[in-house]
Design a protein around this nucleic acid. Structure first.
Lengths: 146, 146
DNA sequence: TGACGATAGTACGACACTCTGACTTAATTG
DNA sequence: CAATTAAGTCAGAGTGTCGTACTATCGTCA
């Protein structure tokens, strides 16, 4: 577990993921969005434009409804999302991106683009594209939801 | 954030990482090692064969000394690791893999190999090797420690 | 050689995250 | 319409993570 080449692919995936996440959060915090946690972001990121149901988010994220509810509560309190009734089901509510949340998106996207550009610099454009393609493909067998 | 192709690389990395982790933990739990958590594993995985210092582990994992201490406490209580004095520094102690921990390693490695084999089946051997190579390369710019 | 700043680790308290189990309300189905 | 299923909430517990503050030891240099 110590020889760099022997690291399993799982850990190798985790290292850059973590680096990306840390960069994004540092950037958001620097821009005043300092009440945004990684766990919240993982939910926020999966929000459909027309809004998503709690149960749906839970399934996608691989977490329980309660956990998602807890995270959405925080996002709502901070003004990043809002809950509106689902017109198609009286039991359900749709979680939608709210005004403050909309302002985060371009900022986060900018930081992501910046990090991706650094990675492209290091790897070269061809290998960066290969990485993206392979990961998208891998998703079809590792992401239980689409 | 909804079109599959538009997912940022960070999230694309996270999805298979999470899938791998879930598989390993399910496998370990099924074999009776049900008191092994992901957080513990991330520490355990980085343990050098001759033992590692807490501070060193903290830096590598990007966590604080206290957090690592807390996780090592649990690993120690469960018999996976042991702490021995560092002969070269009276302040330090080395965290080493203990007997029970040694039994986990081949089991976990087997599950990892199984998952990797499935991924190779899906991606093809050539692209799996590309993935591994690219990730190892990416590590040099995203892992602050080696 | 001994005082002082740096380093390894621990203790404590706070908060974030996640789960299980039990519940309420609304939809669906026979 | 009764029974079952599905969406979401409430309450409680355990884990993971951090910041601050502390002790013990090390290394250095005057």
């Amino acid at each position: 577990m110590d020889d760099p080449e022997s690291l399993n692919v799982g850990l190798l995936l985790f290292i850059p993921y973590r680096a990306m996440e840390a960069r994004v959060f540092a950037g958001l915090a620097a821009a005043g969005f300092d009440d945004f946690t990684p766990a919240q972001a993982r939910v926020f990121q999966r929000l459909a434009p027309q809004g998503s149901r709690l149960t749906e988010l839970a399934a996608q994220a691989g977490l329980t409804k309660q956990t998602i509810g807890f995270l959405v509560d925080q996002l709502e309190r901070a003004g990043y999302v809002e809950r509106v009734p689902d017109p198609r089901d009286g039991r359900a509510r749709l979680v939608r991106i709210a005004e403050r949340g909309r302002r985060v998106i371009p900022l986060a996207a900018g930081i992501v683009a910046e990090v991706e550009a650094e990675w492209t610099d290091h790897l070269g454009g061809r290998r960066m594209e290969q990485l993206r393609g392979i990961l998208a493909d891998l998703r079809t067998v590792t992401d239980p939801y689409r």
